[in-house]
């Protein structure tokens, strides 16, 4: 009965073929370093889930942002846990993404025919860093405020366009309610949408082309 239903659905969705393409594809004999990409994906999903949960209570306005964060951490059941996962997951995400990049780099896995996979991966790293930069401001405590003051000032020293970049990032001369709101919007809409899209492309390429074997050391 149940199997009939599954077969009926599969006749229409064809998801077994998708499942087989993704999980039952042939791969070379590889080592644990090849799990770093999956680890990054796992963390991205974890950040997505915990981030969505945080938005249930967080408010991005200067008068209440910090209070809402304190409320999450101290008043809500498991609030410290959800926020803790998001906080530490964010750091882990950067570390694991860079480790994944180093593995690909030192194994030469970015070479033909995987240049496009590499390039989307580099953009994914930039997005991850963007997440870190925008997310850091959101608690709106002293550390967040001054880190973003400094961070946007760094953008400001770029030649020619620096001042313009700084003003775009801050939404004006100074850090303000406008800055907090645009960092929040970027953090929860712009970057997740970009991340999800690029991850799909990245994974499609990984599955379409297949993964590299561990490079052999040739005896000369």
């Amino acid at each position: 009965m149940f199997l009939n239903l599954v077969n009926w659905l599969d006749d229409r969705f064809g998801w077994r073929a998708v499942w087989e393409a993704i999980f039952l594809r042939k791969i070379p004999h590889v080592n644990w370093l090849y799990t770093l990409g999956s680890a990054t994906l796992f963390l991205a999903i974890l950040q997505g889930i915990t981030g969505i949960l945080l938005t249930l209570y967080y408010v991005p306005t200067p008068d209440h942002a910090y209070d809402s964060v304190v409320y999450i951490s101290t008043q809500l059941p498991a609030g410290w846990f959800i926020r803790g996962l998001h906080h530490w997951g964010a750091s882990a995400m950067v570390v694991v993404t860079v480790a994944h990049l180093l593995r690909v780099f030192f194994y030469g896995a970015y070479k033909y025919p995987r240049e496009a996979t590499w390039i989307t991966g580099v953009f994914l790293l930039l997005i991850v860093i963007g997440f870190g930069f925008t997310g850091y401001l959101l608690p709106w405590d002293q550390k967040a405020f001054w880190a973003t003051t400094v961070g946007t000032r760094i953008a400001g020293v770029a030649p020619v366009v620096g001042d313009w970049l700084l003003r775009i990032a801050r939404g004006g001369d100074e850090l303000s309610a406008v800055t907090l709101a645009r960092f929040f919007g970027t953090h929860i809409w712009v970057l997740p949408a970009s991340l999800a899209t690029l991850i799909l492309v990245h994974l499609y390429l990984v599955i379409r082309i297949g993964i590299t074997a561990v490079p052999l050391r040739k005896e000369e």
């Binding site: 974890l46 249930l56 008043q75 809500l76 059941p77 498991a78 609030g79 846990f81 959800i82």
Partner: peptide, 13 residues
Amino acid sequence: AIGLPAIAYVVGP
């Protein structure tokens, strides 16, 4: 480990 705390977190208030 994530789902159960998430439920408590959502219904807490």
